[in-house]
Write a protein that binds this DNA or RNA. Structure first.
Length: 674
DNA sequence: AAGCTCTGCTTTTTT
DNA sequence: AGCAGAGCTT
């Protein structure tokens, strides 16, 4: 908060509504905190208040949406604390569930499992699908998505299929058979995915003795971004309500995770769901100028859903938001880069700026321009380090050592070996299982199963096993072992940059106690590759972020890129009011990130990309529903740019129609070609 | 038969 | 940028 940083959470710096929210004595509270109203400040102050009242730091749990938000709360509480260590627990729902399940095998009944990320899940699903690779026209990854939606919203598979694929007649029974086989495969291999962690936790909390036991660990559980909590996560909160206190903070207008099962209306029913809960409101905005809020408020007012929300700018008046129209997205990106360079020439630091994009895809065009112009940036929502192919390759070598049942990892690792494909790899894996079943130790089983393969694989894995206590060392050995094959595999794909990533991974691993802990931590809360490049030296940088990853972010200047007809809302959302309104909230979140200068950019050209994204709906429909179609002129300062694309000169008046032009070739005298 | 390589297609949003 | 499939090589 610009005006109220100094001592985070010192009561004197809070306004009356915030102070009330911090000091509330009710057992359960819901704080409705609009954008820029000091949400994080309030949470930090609340934690400090609890600590002052004598709560031990490890009895306060803050549930956040991302690892970054957790780190911020932790560091701000720490910074504000006088001396004594006050490491409060701050983590995501998934991180919490994982901790509980991992640390208490006798309570939850799961031991020796490993976590599957999206790609691994799709891989297991592909194995189940076999030859055809599809069932009812759905790809492996689509089935995984639908299944996850069903779990998170607690609906049947059939309902989830209808929700996700409303236009196709899919036989849920056929999909169900595949899903059953998939679950069976996961069980055999002792795999759990993100949803499983939440489901195991939620299922066990149904036993009131377990709920009482978990609840007794905490004096208060704070939940940030409550509007994005989905029904599955509610099943974790519900049983704990009688056993601890809940302090939830959210904003219905910023609910943008409906695709993951969040229902923004659930925040309205909070008081019914949590008996005796007190509801408090924060409406004073400390972040933005009134002009920025006028535009944001206008956007919400256009919605058929009544948000009953009008942010007031404590900072008063400022510059009008700017609307810049271009011909192409490339022009937008070019102008943004130029604007950043101009600001730099005026001595503004790079950290003045935040660039918001709708999708990872659209962020790449901007990223390219920043690289071109040597502008340092971090891309939240870009490539995740642990999901990139080369890092995955290396981690598979660690995974098979940590969990020899990890079939997905074995298959990937084995097929890296030259002349080894699916068949050979599958045979080696089967041989491994056989050897173990016959009583061999892990190392003996590996020696037997890998006997027909190059010795470096067996020796390398043995070396990793010996180093397993030092995870960074193990990573180093895995990278060394695979270096030759990876250098070849990625020879045309940026091998040098990839090799650098592997060094980053080694460094990240240095503080971890075990291979599984390391992999789980970063799978559950990813690190972006660009984050490491820039963050390493704490350099001044611009932030590029998808709107979804921009939660809690704010900067003096914000560029909202690609706010074009046909993108807001996207054609995919058309025809479904709930989805269109979620898109409106996405734009609202983007607009409310700016403190002083808000620049909305858009373009009109329909690139091939947009044409196929447009799908069956077509552009005209989108024009009509475009959120800025009815934008009153007085709310923005509009500039129309025609950069790099000069208007075609009109021909001189009175020019005669072109004559027929003979395109035949004058062969001339070719002489005697004989 | 198995593996390799090239090409074209696909992509909202994330733990 | 990554994946699936086609067609080619060993």
């Amino acid at each position: 908060m610009a005006g109220q940083v100094a001592d985070d959470g010192a009561l004197a710096d809070l306004n009356p509504a915030q102070r009330e929210a911090v000091l509330t004595g009710a057992s359960h509270n819901l704080v409705l905190a609009g954008a820029g109203t000091g949400k994080t400040t309030t949470i930090v102050a609340r934690v400090r208040h609890l600590l002052r009242q004598g709560a031990s730091p490890d009895r306060v749990l803050a549930i956040t949406f991302t690892r970054r938000a957790a780190a911020e709360i932790r560091s701000r509480v720490q910074a504000a604390a006088s001396g004594a260590s006050s490491q409060v627990h701050a983590m995501t729902f998934h991180g919490w569930a994982m901790r509980e399940v991992r640390n208490n095998p006798d309570v939850f009944g799961y031991e020796g499992w490993s976590v599957l990320d999206a790609e691994d899940q799709a891989q297991v699903m592909r194995g189940v699908l076999g030859r055809g690779k599809r069932v009812e026209g759905l790809k492996a990854s689509q089935i995984v998505d639908v299944l996850s939606f069903a779990h998170n919203t607690r609906v049947t598979l059939a309902d989830a299929i209808r929700a996700k694929h409303p236009d196709s007649a899919i036989d849920a029974k056929a999909v169900g058979a595949v899903v059953r086989a998939y679950e069976e495969r996961k069980r055999e291999r002792r795999y759990l995915n993100y949803d499983d962690l939440l489901m195991i936790f939620a299922a066990r909390l149904k036993d009131d003795a377990v709920a009482a036991w978990v609840g007794a660990h905490y004096d208060e559980i704070l939940v940030d971004e409550m509007q994005d909590t989905n029904p599955l996560q509610w099943q974790i909160i519900d049983p704990l309500v009688p056993h601890t206190r809940f302090y939830c903070v959210g904003d219905d207008a910023q609910s943008i995770y409906g695709f993951r099962g969040a229902d923004f209306a659930s925040i309205h029913s909070f008081a019914q769901r949590v008996p005796g809960a007190r509801v408090l409101k924060l409406e004073d905005n400390y972040r933005s100028s009134q002009e920025i809020l006028d535009l944001s408020n206008w956007l919400l007012d256009q919605s058929p859903l009544g948000y009953d929300k009008h942010l007031r700018a404590i900072r008063g008046r400022g510059a009008k938001p700017e609307l810049h129209s271009f011909e192409t997205p490339q022009d937008e990106a070019g102008w943004i880069a130029a604007e950043l360079l101009r600001a730099r020439a005026d001595d503004l630091p790079w950290s003045t700026h935040l660039i918001l994009v709708r999708s990872n895809y659209s962020g790449r065009a901007i990223e390219a321009r920043l690289i071109e112009n040597d502008i340092p940036y971090v891309f939240f929502g870009g490539t995740k380090l642990l999901e990139s192919a080369h890092v995955r390759d290396v981690l598979c070598a660690l995974r098979v050592v940590a969990n020899p049942d990890d079939e997905v990892a074995w298959m990937r690792l084995l097929t890296l070996v030259p002349r080894v494909g699916d068949r050979t790899a599958a045979r080696a894996f089967d041989a491994l299982l056989d050897a173990r079943a016959g009583g061999a130790t892990e190392r003996e089983a590996r020696a037997a199963a890998l006997s027909g393969l190059p010795a470096w694989l067996r020796d390398g894995l043995d070396a990793i096993e010996e180093a397993a206590q030092r995870v960074d060392d193990a990573v180093g050995r895995a990278a060394a072992m695979l270096q030759p094959v990876l250098a070849h595999k990625y020879r045309n794909e940026n091998w040098d940059a990839r090799a650098r990533d592997l060094v980053h991974v080694e460094r990240l691993a240095a503080t971890r106690r075990s291979i599984l802990e390391f992999i789980e931590e970063y799978l559950l809360s990813p690190v972006f590759t660009s984050e490491l490049e820039a963050g390493q030296r704490d350099t001044d940088h611009v932030i590029v972020s998808t709107v979804h990853s921009a939660k809690g972010l704010e900067r003096d200047w914000a560029f909202c890129a690609g706010v074009s007809a046909g993108s807001y809302p996207s054609p995919r959302a058309m025809g479904d009011e709930a989805e269109v309104e979620e898109e409106r909230r996405v734009l609202y979140v983007a607009l409310t990130r700016a403190r002083d200068r808000l620049m909305v950019t858009r373009s009109v050209v329909h690139t091939p990309v947009r044409a196929w994204m447009g799908g069956p709906y077509g552009v005209d429909v989108a024009e009509d529903a475009y959120f800025l179609a009815q934008l009153p002129e007085h709310l923005v300062e509009e500039t129309v740019h025609t950069v790099g694309r000069p208007v075609r000169p009109t021909p001189p008046p009175g020019l005669a129609a072109p004559p027929e032009i003979d395109l035949g070739v004058d062969l001339g005298d070719l002489g005697d070609l004989g």
